[in-house]
Structures are given as structure tokens and as C-alpha cells.
Design a protein around this nucleic acid. Sequence first.
DNA 1: TTATTAAAGGATATTTTTGTCTTTTATTTG
DNA 2: CAAATAAAAGACAAAAATATCCTTTAATAA
Lengths: 134, 134
Amino acid sequence: MRAVFYIASHSLDGSRPGIKEIAENINSPEHFLAKILQKLSKGGIVSSIKGPNGGFFIEPQGLNRPLADIITCLEGDQIFTGCGMGLSYCSESNPCPLHHEFKKVRNQLTHMLYQTTIGEFNGELRAGALTLNK
Amino acid sequence: MRAVFYIASHSLDGSRPGIKEIAENINSPEHFLAKILQKLSKGGIVSSIKGPNGGFFIEPQGLNRPLADIITCLEGDQIFTGCGMGLSYCSESNPCPLHHEFKKVRNQLTHMLYQTTIGEFNGELRAGALTLNK
DNA sequence: TTATTAAAGGATATTTTTGTCTTTTATTTG
DNA sequence: CAAATAAAAGACAAAAATATCCTTTAATAA
């Protein structure tokens, strides 16, 4: 998510940071980050260009996608739909003890992740008001 | 948490289920459950007695403790205080991009886990309205 | 068109989490 | 006290998550 924020905040002026640059700026192991960006690239969250002057970027419309898309791409929709205690049987019609209470929390998280967009923090990030370090 | 619910629902009549019985009823590997119960026992969430007719139980006042205590005992208070993106620098005065939005979600989760008590589901569990299977 | 740059992909390694096995200690009952 | 029961504890094993390395592919520029 930090990598996506970093790329997003650099996509306004058409620049394309490479893995090395991103990794340095978000304190992430380079090769590990590469794996994640590959997945995000396949999922269409970020775009990439190889070769000199290549790197990662996000299309203008991509900046309006919700954060939830990042999570879905990387980890599936388990956190949006799954049981709070990880129970397979749990559902609306056959709820686990925590089901109803947990649903409220999960709904709020879901709502937050669908309302917040990838590009939402660009201004503050570029102004230096927010940072992405570990 | 399911183990605690199971023990709680059997502590009303003074019975003391053993690890084997608990494991069977919550579909948990016996020895793995043993480790968890050891930790919960050290933390004072559950009590235990060795030997014949021994097993685990929860004191009457223990039934009024919040679910949050279980989590704190097993995993610390990271989920109550930590940053949503796992950033070490993030705080109220030096927030990460998601800090303010995530705080709302975390606060609701925290509230839920502190309002809900360990013994809260005893009635429904004993009536069979709720189950603890995986 | 060749050298260089940078992402993609596959194989491997490390670490953490989860799960298992065995021995020890405590308690109860005959 | 001796035998049986059951949790506590420690050592060990398997699986999953995280991280690294190396080779391949694509793009650019001289």
C-alpha cells in the first residue's frame, strides 16, 4: 500500500520510479517489493514499462480506485467477507458468537477502504506532510 | 477465543473440561490448544487444576472480563494501539496516510472487544443456538 | 544493432507461525 | 503410599509467510 502511495504521488507529473527508488523510499526489501509490484501489475492496479526510463506508474483513472482494490488484488476478499474468528461455517443464517458485533467493525473497515482512493493522499505526500517510511 | 467460550459455558455448573474434550468440541489440534491454554492460564484468563477430575474453568468474576483481555494475553495490545499499516513511526502527532481513518475502525473494534464479555454467550451456547466448530 | 536498463519470472532460502511429541509435575483416588 | 489422571513445560517438526537470488524478457538509446 505504501508502494502504491509512492507511485501514485509520482504519477501526476508522468515520472516512473523504479523498484530501487520505491524500495528506498518506503524502507522495503527490494526483491520482496518486486514480487508485490508484479502482482499489482498483473491485477492492473499499477502499470509498468521496462527498459531505460522505465518503472512503475498509475494511470490517471487508477488514482480514483479505492484502496480496497489493492487488498483484493494482493490478498483476496477474505477480510471483506470472512468471519472474524476465521470460522468456515459462520454466516448470516448460522452465525458464530461474534458474528453480529464483528460485522459492524468489518463493515466500517470495508466502507473506509472503498471510500478512500489511491490518489487521495497525493497532495499531502507531495507537500511532505505525510511520509511512507517504516 | 472459542476455547475460552467453551470453558466459560461449562464453568457455570462447576464442571472442568479437559484439553481433550475442549479440542474435540472446537475442532482444534489438542497439543496446539494446550499451548494456548497454558498462556491463558498464566495470564489468569482461565484457571486449571491438575490430576483426575482436573481441567480448565473460569472463575465467576472471570466471566465478566472483556474479550480484549484474551487478545492482550495471547498477542499483546498491538491491535489496540498499533498503526493500521504496521508503521513504527506513526502516531497522533506524526500520522501515516491512513492514520485518522483507520483509527475510527480500530476504535470501534476496541470498543467492541472491551464491551463484550467472556461469559456473554453462555446462554446461547448452552441452548445450542451458537456453535464453536471450525 | 548492440549495449544498457529495468521489470518479469522462477527457484531457493530464511523466518515466523502453527502444530506435534515427549517428559515432568501436580493432584486425586483406591 | 501407589496408580492413574491431567496440566505444564520443553524440544522438535511442518507449514506458511516473508525475503533473496538468478535468469529471462522487453524497451530504450547510442
